[in-house]
Design a binder for these strands. Structure first.
Lengths: 351, 351
DNA sequence: CGCAGGTATCGAATCGATTCGAGCGGCGGG
DNA sequence: CCCGCCGCTCGAATCGATTCGATACCTGCG
């Protein structure tokens, strides 16, 4: 091995400054009383040695804190970031976390490497975004490691704090609004309900086998009002998927006068599909969605949708993690959506 | 303090299994020879004590590796993820990094806390995405820490490996194509050129003060062909920004027959702005963009654009980091864009 | 039967900081 | 003038693993 430049250590700095290691440490961390003159000497020595501050690894071993909060998603990163809701929530999380001096570690629960980063990455807390039960093995590792766990719209689990949304009652409220407008034949365009993200008409069997809390709850809300509503499952929360699913739904059920989409993107796809077959929204087909996403560049329609406080949800999750880390008691949070009436719903044509 | 459950340590497991700590370590890591029977005993003891595997903090102190690769962006997370290019590149990075068993730490170079996570987060390497020179202080900390640095379209810096794109010659090729079609009056819609993301007409002073490599290079390419092309700066790579900037440009220069947008999103905004004022694309106004982004839900126009291998860029950056970590020699990478002719360019109307 | 060679295990040093209690002057009050 | 307190500095233990060299045992061969 050639010359060893090897990063200088705090001990080296202390030696050069002629103080003990403990004093040098105090000079850097600012904790504890240090004479100004001493601190200057230490900092000068550090500069001379090109010392860049204490090694985070050593520090984190000693203090038990790494300054990292992990966010675990089940999707591929690409898919997750295509979803404006995930991004918005992440933004809330990042903001809150950053403010508190933590950094954000992005983990996916990929099938390939079952507990890849989850097991080996240093983290002080973990936020699980919309995770299904089959994340169980990974999550177990974390609770063994006594990492505080916060689940956002995740299946309940012992020892996990939760952030929830009124998916069912919110969607029910939306459905009731459609019924009040006079709709009776309504179809539902669903978010994926399994990890394979398989498309197609929803059958009772598929529903029973599903692990996706959010999709199930939103469907339940819709069916509270329209018990027989047919549903088509999309392969993701994407405009194109909403387009495809709606087309399939309208092919199979031409009598539908309204579509309930489980997300705004699906709803936008529904509008595209409708227009493509010559239907005018909302006169020929009403579209109700969910999320209240702010989507760049789509200004023509204002979706009627259930607005959820997504950024706040992210913030809340982050704050719960921070509270848990601070040793404060943590109580679950639950949020409510609000029906925002746009230009995509109207009474059905009186035929 | 109440009862201390305190996570069991490897030493405890070793003791319970009746082996030495070293043996227990080997049993877990798989390195070194361990009799099968012994390993089973260790794993059993671990199970009984509910031991979740070695502490990443301690491991990383000892091994000098944390298994984390950081990605540094200058935007807020929200802004960065609104940009499909950033997301796509991140996807390439995440994929490559994950494959190698590393996790991804997301850092932003926020003004508030100058070296926030950058200084304190454990990381084995850092990827800087499109960062300007004023990232200097943060970056210096990292090179002090001897963390391998990879810059993507970043200003050159000593000790930093680079991934580059032919922004200038690519855009020049696009501009030449416009000229061949017969265009002479062309305007440029630009990406932000300063951290404040201030909008408005581009002046020579603002250009001189700018730090944004990518925007400058792409402009230079356009002006290689149309030296006097007026330019308007957008407040981000967003459809709405392209819309606004194009409107401003057309107000000030009604004679323009083509718009060169520095990103696809800006290009889409340009189309919107054109259509809004009754111009037909491409007959009345041609639009040339840059990126070749795959954008969900926009199927009407096929942008004429310079396609860049964005995912590959991400992969390359990640691979360079991994190579550096493996002690292999690293050589800079540079990529080329390709002009893809769509339906948004045509000869100008012969007036 | 003795020894070389190999394998499984062990001891102990080490990674680089933080932190707690003790020590040591200097200053103010009695 | 002496004592006690306060403010600064120092030593040494500690965090929880990895890893290198040494040890003990066993096998097979001469």
């Amino acid at each position: 091995m050639p010359a060893e430049p090897s990063r200088p250590t705090l001990a080296a700095v202390a030696a050069r400054a002629g103080v003990s290691q403990s004093t040098a440490s105090l000079a850097f961390s600012g904790a504890g009383p240090v004479a100004e003159e001493t601190r200057d000497r230490v900092l000068a020595a550090a500069r001379e040695l090109d010392y860049g501050g204490p090694d985070p690894r050593a520090r984190s071993l000693r203090t038990g804190r790494s300054g990292i909060i992990a966010v675990v998603m089940e999707d591929r990163i690409l898919d997750a970031f295509r979803d404006p809701m995930a991004v918005a929530m992440l933004d809330g999380i990042a903001d809150e976390i950053g403010q508190a001096g933590y950094s954000l570690l992005l983990l996916t629960d990929s099938d390939d490497r079952p507990v890849g980063g989850l097991r080996d990455a240093p983290m002080d807390a973990a936020l699980l975004l919309g995770c299904s039960t089959d994340l169980e093995p990974s999550v177990r590792v974390l609770s063994q490691r006594q990492v505080p766990l916060i689940g956002v719209e995740a299946a309940p689990r012992e020892g996990m704090h939760r952030v929830d949304l009124d998916n069912r009652s919110g969607m029910r409220r939306g459905a009731e609004y459609l019924r009040e407008l006079g709709h009776e034949r309504v179809g539902v365009v669903m978010l994926p309900i399994d990890r394979a993200r398989s498309r197609g008409a929803l059958t009772p069997e598929r529903l029973a086998a599903s692990e996706a809390e959010t999709a199930r709850e939103r469907l339940a809300g819709a069916r509270d009002v329209f018990p027989d509503a047919p549903a088509e499952v999309g392969g993701g929360s994407l405009i194109d998927e909403g387009h495809r699913a709606t087309a399939a739904l309208l092919d199979a059920h031409p009598e539908l006068t309204a579509i309930i989409a489980q997300s705004d993107l699906l709803g936008l796809g529904a509008i595209q599909a409708a227009e493509e077959r010559g239907l005018v929204v909302p006169e020929d087909l009403s579209v109700l969605a969910f999320d209240g996403a702010r989507i760049d560049g789509l200004s023509i329609h204002r979706l009627t949708t259930l607005v959820q406080p997504i950024v706040e949800k992210g913030r809340a999750a982050a704050r719960m993690a921070l509270a848990a880390l601070a040793g404060e008691p943590v109580s679950d949070a639950s949020f409510e959506s609000e029906l925002r009436i746009g230009t995509t719903t109207a009474p059905p044509r009186t035929s």
